[in-house]
Structure formats: structure tokens, C-alpha cells
Nucleic acid binder design. Sequence first.
RNA 1: GGCUGGAUGGCAGAGUGGUCAUGUAGCGGACUGCAACUCCGCGUACGCCGGUUCGAUUCCGACUCCAGCCUCCA
Length: 482
Amino acid sequence: MALQIYNTLHRRKEPFRPIEPGKIRMYVCGITVYDYCHIGHARVMVCFDAIVRYLRSQGWDVTYVRNITDIDDKILNRASENGEPFDALTARMIDAMHADERALGVLPPDIEPRATGHIDDILDMIGTLVDGHYAYAADNGDVYYRVRRFPDYGKLSGKNPDELLAGARVDPDAAKEDPRDFALWKSAALGTVGWPSPWGWGRPGWHIECSAMSTCHLGATFDIHGGGPDLPFPHHENEIAQSEAATGKPYVHCWMHAGPVRVDDEKMSKSLGNFFTIREVLEKYNPEVVRFFLLSSHYRSPINYSEANLREAKAGLDGLYFAIRGKIGRDTSVAIAPFAVEEMRGNAYFQRFVQAMEDDFNTREAITLMQELAGSINHCARAGEDWSQQVRVLVGIGATLGILQQDPEDYFKTCVGQGGLTAGGSALVGFESGLTVDQLITERNQARANRNFASADAIRDQLKAAGIVLEDSGKETRWRRE
RNA sequence: GGCUGGAUGGCAGAGUGGUCAUGUAGCGGACUGCAACUCCGCGUACGCCGGUUCGAUUCCGACUCCAGCCUCCA
């Protein structure tokens, strides 16, 4: 089955046709770095990360660009509130973003361009637009895009330009010829943050940077442009207008947009203030659980961030790790390397996985079949049948989604919160006696050997209260965190 | 008001013109000193009204409700 992707531009799934055989050039709108990344950012990062991992596993030569917006009014305002230079703020937030990404298992994009690193490209594109009368310098020193000059305006978001005019929410700036026009260049007072330009000292508008950076790194026309759910209008609509007017070529073949994240069934937004940062979320949940949660719905569906849903995600991922526990990893005598993709081709589960992913990246279906595979492994293990092939396929599929790659014992022992994204050792966090779990297990097993079950159960309860579950299997006692 | 997309079992969430989603929670049983893990079994799901069809949750139309965007936001 050939790859099908839902294209926002045409509002339907379409067979994917690369511009250049075997290659995919892809740009995803990244973060404006004035604050910590929130769970909505995490969804975009994780979904496109899984998509790119999958595409590469199928042999596509993907060039993945995701930008950083590091100059913008929000950044300037926040820096001024903090009383620090804007680039000190952005440097700090970029570091934090990279740390969040690493925690969530998000691989870095191939190219991560920054707006401030492309001022010349931005200026060039604005110049081209002004020369072509697609843009004009206003009396206030700003340069605006002339929306009326671009007949296709609205084709991505399905908006009628005339109705936009009637719409009450466009900014009726006196300097603009038309309320729909948007800023390409914002003038700024000398001595404030800015760059010289033919139109005076200033800084770029929000939309132009993506047009300039994507064209610079991927060419005038490229395959896929992605982003969050609030981007089709106006951001991507404006990108199309700028780029197609400037280059005279079609901008993007396929537009992909992730669905929104809700919080406890309410819209999450900056203005409502009900958003959670990634680091807040990781105080409460294992990062891999968060990734699993994000992938357990289709990327275009709305998802609801809630305690109950995260708990369920944990139970789901636990189930996968239980299935491979004791069968793979450094604590087992059986060292099993996951299958390479080519080895998995003949496997029925893997074929279902490919089929699900080729159908607009249906990661929910992919996870479902991983769960079925886990069930089959458990069944085989109980029946004394060979499970080794299935385990390798399960872990191989997991690799393609960026999950299930930890040693199961590390996963089960990872201590969440308390500032730690670290796998817990045997030290018992929050336990006053200073005893380790292993010491208590030894003590309890002595009690069990003496059939002193009251003491044994007291230790079990004590550990349970500290969030640690003991599991007696054969002669061995293992532990994990709840 | 305009533009999109939805409505599936307690919950989450795929999918399909006609015998099964799956997971999770719950219940019963097996296993276990007690547990955990695991296994086996159970529960008459497809918003509402029409239409097409031998047959619709799945296709078509109306209706109701919900969400996202139209304003900073991924």
C-alpha cells in the first residue's frame, strides 16, 4: 500500500508523491522561545518525530527542518519584564527545549534554523515582494504584505478573502492599505533590538521568517509542511501568500496539521492559562508514558490531557514492557537484538504496522497491534512456545515509533518526579531508614524462609507505601515502582 | 455569524456495507503463603430521523450536540 497523507490544502487523504524520487523535504513550524514548551508543543514534536522515524525506516531520504523563532514581540516583552537581554532569554529557553525533547525521545531535526540567523534571507524576500508590488512600505516604517494582490489568499484555510474583510477581528491599523494586510517588517526605534534594512531599522514579522528559512533550506517548492492546529490561519496562509508571490512557484505539496491538546476537557490556551509545561508534566509522569500517550491517538484527533488518561497510558505501556520483561535486556541471559526492518518484512504484525502507518500515520492502530503482539508473546510464554521472534518484532516496531527501547528493568525502576528524569537505582527515595530496597528484600526473604509471613508482609506493605511493588517469581524477588 | 472536523461499549480509541477491534476499568475463574505478572471467561457499542440496499455503526440527506480556527497560542 502506498503512503497516504491527509493534506489540509485539499482536505482529504492523498497518495504521497515526492518531488524527487525517494526524497522527502519537510519543514515543521517550531517554537517561539520565550517560555518553556508546553504539552501542545510536545504533541507536535513527538508526532512529527515518529513520522520522520517511520519514513526513514521505510527507506525515505528525509530532510527534516524545524525552525526556532527567536525574535518576536513576545520575546522582547518577556525579556524586558525579566530585565535581561532578549538573546539571554532565548538561549535559556532553547536549552530547555532541547532538554525537553531529549526527555521525550525526540530526535533533533536535520536543520534547526533560527530567525535571527536568516535576516538577510528575510530581507531579500521582502525586497522581492516590494519590487513585485506584493508589499509596500507604510508611513509608519512598517512593510506590509498586500493581501489583495494575491488572488489565492485563503485557499489553505478555506476562507473567503472578502468575508475576512467583513470579519470584525482583523486589526484595523491606520497605516495599512487594507485591514487584512500583515506585517513583513516591523520598524523599531534605533537603539532597540533590530537590524538595518532598506526600510529602516526594525525586525521581521512572524510569518516571513518561515517562508525565508524554508525556501533557503528546502527550495521554493518542497514536499511537506507541518505544524500545530492553530497555524493554518493566519500563519500558513500568509506563508503561502509570501512564498508563492516571491518565487512564482507552488510553495508546498502537502500540509499536515496536528490536532489540539485539551486539558481536562477544556481548550488549552495561553490566555486561559491552563497549559502545562513539559517539565511540569514530567514531574508526574515517566517521559516515555507521555510519549506513548501522545502517540496513542491519531495525530489529527483532539486529545485530552487528564490524570485518568495519563494513568491509562501508563497501564498500556507497562503492559508492553511486561511482555518483554525478562526476555530482553541486560538482566536476561537471552540477549535479543530487535529485528532490522528488512528482517521484519515477512512478519504479519509488521505488515499490519506498515499498513497502519502508510494510512496517514495511524499510530493508534500501530499501538493496538503492538498490544496484540504483547498478548501473543504472553500466551506463548505461558504455553511454553517460542516467543523470541515476536519479542524482536515488538521491539523493532517500538524502535520505529521511538518507544519500548529501554531495558525493561530501567523502565520499571524509573523514579518519576523529584526532579529526576533518571532511572532509579536501588536507593529507596523518601525512605528514612536509609535502607535500600535490596536490603529489605533480603530481610523479607529470610522471614519468608522462616515462614514468618507477618514480618514478610509488613515489609511488603512498607515498600508498597513507598510506591514499590515486590514480585516473587521462583527463587527471585524483583521490584518495580508503581 | 463564516470555515473545518467530529459524535462508537464505564472510560480511552481504531475500523468496517453482512461472523472479532484493541486497550483500560469492572466481574468470575486459574496461578500465588499473601501479592505482582500472566492466562482463561464475561459484558447485547456505534447521537437522532429519514433514504439507498437483501442487509448500514459503516453510503446519502436533514436534525441535534460537541470541538478547532476566524484574537497571542503547537
